[in-house]
């Protein structure tokens, strides 16, 4: 399993892996918002955490369609599924998700503090946004895996994955953003939405890979 994790991280980072595309897209989204909204620093600071979250959400959906498709095209997916007695398919999917998250989504989280400066968010708000993204984005990857597994056979499934997955990640977005605001705005609490966000990630870490493994198993042809 460690071998699979290392292989996928390596593939993600090497040329054509898509780790860089995600981070560039994130940068592009966040950097254009101030031009559109205008130079109102207070307004930017207020909407900043939400923009960071939406940007990270969309950027992390970008590479998801390749999660299983690349393996399917070169025949590895058959072999991964065939080894199902040795490594439970759901566990294989889970490890692939973790590797995808490490290679493609973790860089987004690391870039968040820098992009937070663009949005004039105060330091504690930047910290809160980064922490909520750190615990919230794995949930997006886990749901995304289910979407990617369903559309694995479609030649241009990229947009399809996003459309399938977006409604399901709305709760993650809501609690992520409200926790980030909770750290800044005084009457709003930080801890309750943050804990719900953690719970969502843990919950989806189980449901997502199991659903994806089922979809992959019934989808082979």
């Amino acid at each position: 399993m460690l071998a699979l994790y290392l292989r996928d991280v390596r593939l993600g980072i090497r040329a054509g892996g898509g780790a860089l595309t995600g981070i560039l897209f994130f940068l592009a989204v966040v950097a254009t918002i101030p031009f559109g909204v205008g130079p109102d620093l207070n307004l930017l600071g207020r909407i900043g955490p939400a923009i960071l979250w939406i940007g990270a959400l969309l950027a992390s959906l970008l590479g998801l369609d390749r999660l299983f498709q690349a393996d399917r095209e070169d025949g590895s997916l058959d072999l991964l599924m065939l080894a199902g007695d040795r490594h439970m398919p759901a566990l294989t999917v889970f490890v692939k998700c973790l590797a995808h998250w490490t290679a493609c989504v973790l860089p987004l989280v690391i870039a968040t503090p820098l992009l937070g400066l663009f949005m004039n968010i105060e330091p504690i708000g930047i910290g809160a946004a980064a922490v909520t993204l750190l615990v919230g984005t794995p949930a997006i990857t886990f749901i995304g895996a289910a979407g990617a597994a369903v559309t694995v056979a479609l030649p241009r499934g990229g947009l399809m994955v996003s459309v399938l997955v977006l409604p399901l990640v709305i709760p993650v977005l809501i609690f992520g953003v409200s926790a980030s605001y909770g750290a800044v705005a005084d009457p709003d609490p930080f801890l309750p939405p943050f804990l719900i966000l953690c719970a969502l990630t843990l919950f989806l870490a189980v449901i997502g890979p199991v659903a994806a493994a089922l979809a992959l198993e019934s989808g082979v042809d």
Binding site: R7, R10, L11, R14, E73, D74, G75, S76, D78, L79
Partner: peptide, 10 residues
């Protein structure tokens, strides 16, 4: 199978 199951980048 028909495909070799190997990654081009590795």
């Amino acid at each position: 199978g028909h495909e070799n199951g190997m990654k081009k980048a590795l």
